[in-house]
């Protein structure tokens, strides 16, 4: 099991090459090898959505993807999407609406929401709830998350953009 393979991929805009075990998941690779701990492992079987990352622009379960399968792809994690301010409006809306408590599901929720709004810019509440059906949250009861995504959809449709999220004072 210890034979390693070289993998070259782009993570958060940076192209890098690493040796990985064939059995290593993309989630473990991001968390352990790259220190990108914003991607979380909740069930390791593709049910809870905590490990969602963008792979070539689409939400993918990093726990169901082997690192070697990600060769040649572009991965974006919550850290990268924060830096690039792509999800700054979602982050702001989640914060304002308190659409997170413990925060463990949050990176996956943000990526699911970003994926939803990319394919369906003005979803109904039912469509938002449906799109989140693979993202488990034990804390919030979901309503605040639905509210936040609905708000961002409306703001985006109105052409509003959000400044960088992390630099604003609380």
């Amino acid at each position: 099991m210890s034979a390693t393979l070289p993998v070259t991929l782009t993570v958060n805009g940076e192209t890098l090459t690493r040796l990985v075990e064939p059995r290593e998941t993309l989630a473990d690779f991001l968390r352990r090898d790259l220190g990108l701990t914003g991607t979380h492992a909740g069930c390791e079987m593709g049910v809870c959505g905590a490990c969602l990352v963008m792979l070539d622009g689409l939400p993918v379960h990093a726990c169901l993807t082997f690192a070697v399968q990600a060769a040649g792809t572009e991965i974006a994690t919550v850290e990268g999407l924060t830096e690039s301010t792509v999800i700054a409006d979602l982050q702001r809306a989640f914060h304002e609406r308190n659409a997170l408590q413990c925060g463990f599901c949050t990176p996956g929720m943000l990526i699911a929401a970003q994926g939803l709004l990319a394919r369906l810019p003005l979803p109904s509440r039912a469509e938002i709830r449906d799109a989140l059906s693979g993202n488990y949250c034990r804390c919030t009861g979901y309503e605040a998350i639905v509210d936040a995504i609905e708000t961002v959809a409306r703001r985006r449709a109105a052409g509003e953009t959000a400044p960088r999220f992390a630099e604003e004072p609380a």
Partner: peptide, 17 residues
């Protein structure tokens, strides 16, 4: 709002995991 929620939103949470 919760000041400490911002780093969780930015993927900067620090869980034991």
């Amino acid at each position: 709002t919760r000041p400490n929620a911002k780093r969780l939103l930015a993927g900067r949470g620090r869980y034991v995991t």
